[in-house]
Design a protein around this nucleic acid. Sequence first.
DNA 1: AAAGCTTTCAACCGCGTGGGT
DNA 2: AACCCACGCGGTTGAAAGCTT
Length: 212
Amino acid sequence: MRTPNSNMNTGLRKGKWSHEEDQMLIAYISRYGIWNWSQMPRFAGLSRSGKSCRLRWMNYLKPNIKRGNFSKEEEEIILHSHSVLGNKWSAIASKLPGRTDNDVKNFWYTHLKKRVSHYNKNPETHEQNGESEFGCINMDEMEQPVNHLNKVLESCLTYEDDIFSSSSSFPHYDTSSPGTIDDLQCFWQQLSPFENLELGNTHLNMFSNEFF
DNA sequence: AAAGCTTTCAACCGCGTGGGT
DNA sequence: AACCCACGCGGTTGAAAGCTT
């Protein structure tokens, strides 16, 4: 986390995002979609770089970002994927709906790297316990959570067709009194059928009238 | 209670890539 | 072909929170 300050040369704010800035970015993207990250902050009234806005949106504000602890299944998928892909965090994150590359990377360095290092140093101890380098399950079992997640994704995509054909299905969000960031996240969660779909203009405009 | 140390994770930075001119 | 620009990615940083002494 960085302290809020501003760049004396550009006048751009840096550091932690305020609730108000989050609201402004969400409101702007909800209304106009994502068209150009470098121009957008100016039109949205934000004193931030496009890069900063993009990062904030992608890692925190985007609909259906999953917060909180990683499940055992997610852990195993990360470990397995990392053994195959290496530090390709975005590729690994793409296997975990709702998780960002930044989240995966942080989780790897704070939780999983130690476990893998320990295994590499003491493989015989772990093997005696019937553990793989990923902790406790074998490679065949590893495929199951991946398949399960793919099925969940497929069902979401099917549901998307249904929900767009009946506008009354959209959850309602009171933007005149938006409440806390938790309220917002609760609202985004209600839009779960849209998860993993890039919210381009087409999708957003469909519910922007009701949204505002 | 408080000082020092460690961990977590949001955010920044630099670089590579691809598309447009 | 060369340049510019926007975007995305991976590595790194550092404040805040949590833990230990």
